[in-house]
């Protein structure tokens, strides 16, 4: 039934213009907001190069769960217990959080909307993707993340799925 395809294409295009685009625009506008200020000037490079930490040592569940998770204060505490390890002012700020047993209010940059099921486990373990594919060269970052390397957009998801020959059926991701 190839004739049916034309209206479908047309519908799809109309849809993208009418509904999907605003979603992209709004979400792009949000995530690339330069005003994002993280509570602590976290330095990924120091932790990876100097302290020799692996991604999954702080983002604990990256290989086992849907969400990789931002580290809780308990994870920071394993190294930063009492005495500072550096002369950084930022570490003092961290130690304050640790001593007060308060979680650090990180601003979450990579947010997937609730109608999407995104599983780190599936992408990292099953899909064998490198973290850098979406998050960039984190090991070189000296400042905390304030904008997304790869914007969380359906277009970006689908491009990659297409190139890797992974299903783009709505129900593969949308719930």
């Amino acid at each position: 039934m190839p004739m049916l395809n034309w209206p479908r294409v047309a519908r799809f295009t109309v849809n993208i213009i009418l509904f999907v685009m605003p979603v992209f625009m709004v979400s792009c506008a949000f995530v690339s907001d330069d005003d994002v200020k993280q509570p602590i000037a976290y330095n990924h490079r120091v932790h990876i190069e100097n302290a020799g930490l692996k991604c999954q040592e702080c983002h604990l569940y990256v290989e086992t769960m849907a969400s990789a998770t931002l580290p809780s204060i308990e994870i920071c505490r394993t190294c930063h217990e009492t005495a500072p390890l550096s002369e950084s002012q930022e570490e003092l700020a961290l130690l304050k959080y640790v001593s007060e047993e308060k979680e650090i209010p990180w601003v979450n940059i990579y947010q997937v909307p609730d109608h999407v099921y995104f599983s780190h486990r599936r992408h990292v373990v099953g899909g064998e993707l490198e973290c850098s594919a979406c998050h960039g060269m984190v090991s070189a970052m000296t400042a905390p993340v304030t904008s997304a390397f790869l914007e969380v957009t359906m277009e970006n998801c689908m491009d990659c799925h297409r190139s890797k020959n992974v299903s783009n059926d709505c129900l593969s991701c949308h719930r």
Partner: peptide, 12 residues
């Protein structure tokens, strides 16, 4: 739509 782009809180 703003809401969807703006205030979703968590992956999980």
């Amino acid at each position: 739509i703003k809401l969807v782009g703006g205030t979703s809180v968590s992956l999980a």
